[in-house]
């Protein structure tokens, strides 16, 4: 059981290869049915996340390599993924790779208020640690990231946006 869990937890995200699926919080469960059969549950970050097929294939490959003949990958949709599930180790790995980790996610219950002004976040530059940063766009290179720039070192960088 522990072996299957650690093999699955060690698989990395195809688009954020510095993060494991466990660090990203998309690995929702690993259940060993018997010596040859394991069931893994993953959840998409965004509805259109194109990396799900690659995640599934990587999990199947890793667990098959660890001796499981039957690897079932199930999708979990509820509760919806939130950036709050990114582990402390995952946040450190993101920052080390030059990606600003997310702050606390807003509550997703009740009516969602309209926000006409740019989202106010305390984002520090992952390159030079300056707090002088500005939002370029709420949409970035993948669905889960916003684009920022640092007005101190002038480097652009990605910020994992809170959902």
């Amino acid at each position: 059981m522990a072996a299957a869990r650690s093999v699955a937890a060690g698989v990395t995200d195809p688009e954020l290869p510095m993060l494991t699926l466990a660090d990203l919080g998309v690995l929702r469960g690993v259940e060993v049915v018997d010596d040859s059969h394991v069931v893994v549950e993953i959840t998409p970050t965004y509805s259109g996340c194109p990396a799900m097929a690659a995640m599934r294939d990587d999990l199947v490959r890793a667990l098959t390599g660890a001796g499981f003949e039957q690897v079932e990958v199930r999708i979990s949709l509820h509760p919806a993924w939130t950036t709050d599930w990114i582990t402390p180790a995952g946040r450190v790995a993101l920052a080390a790779a030059g990606i600003s980790p997310p702050g606390p996610a807003p509550s997703a219950d009740g009516p969602i208020p309209l926000t006409l002004l740019p989202t106010a976040r305390q984002v520090r530059c992952p390159q030079c640690d300056s707090p002088a940063t500005e939002l370029v766009s709420e949409f970035g290179s993948t669905a889960c990231k916003a684009q920022y720039r640092c007005t101190s070192c002038l480097e652009p960088f990605d910020h994992v946006k809170e959902i």
Partner: peptide, 9 residues
Amino acid sequence: AVAAKGVKE
């Protein structure tokens, strides 16, 4: 579940 995820997007 689809809606709970979709509202964030």
